[in-house]
Amino acid sequence: MRFLPWVAYVLVGLALWLGLVFAPPEAVMGQVVRLLYFHVGSAWNAFLAFGVVLIGSVAFLRTRAPRWDRLAAASAEIGVVFTTVTLLSGMFWARAVWNTWWRWEPRLTTTALLWFIYVAYLILRSSVEEPERRGTLAAVVGIAGFLDVPLVYFSARWWGGFHPSAVEMSGSMVLALVASVFAFTALYAELLGLAVATRAAEDRLARLRAGARP
């Protein structure tokens, strides 16, 4: 784990170079295709992060161990950041390629709703003081929110879809894409470790302030 920060930073630097310099512009989309490297990497990690929220929520309800709640909370925060990056990069891309910022399309709808669900999750957390109570209520929302996702996706899919599922890519573009997915995943792991450690320190501080033994 001591090497994780370095792995994350080096991989992110490498992915940036591969995506922004090394990979060629695309035949039709031109330079805009470079958004793809940020878009796919952050989208995959957003889903991963919300999956971790689900795991942390279920484990917290079963065990009542605060570390599971810290894991869920930390992962939700990072997931919201990655979802924001996914939405923004997608919107810039859509503006250039579809000539519109937004379309009510399955993956866009699902991602937008994910954003709202987990922002509500974070607001919920910030409005409960008592840690065990906060963890319990948040876990219920974390579970219900995740169950909602496939329903949104499938219902939005029957509503009509335009999202590209494949882009014609050269070898160097595939390399840049794969590198960015790995780099963002390493970044997610690093940020998650930091956010969990921060929360553990906050909890310990709160206990010390309350006069209990750490």
């Binding site: 669900i117 509500a120 607001i123 409005s127 209520l137 929302v141 949104v152 509503w159």
Partner: peptide, 30 residues
């Protein structure tokens, strides 16, 4: 379910639509 969660919050009433409406989105479509 959401009302039960919101009832135990300080600002529960304000949070209720924020928690409920995203969860209700697939239902809204169908």
């Amino acid at each position: 379910l959401v009302a039960a969660v919101a009832a135990s919050l300080r600002s529960g009433e304000a949070l209720l639509p924020l928690l409920g409406l995203p969860l209700l989105a697939p239902l809204a479509l169908g």
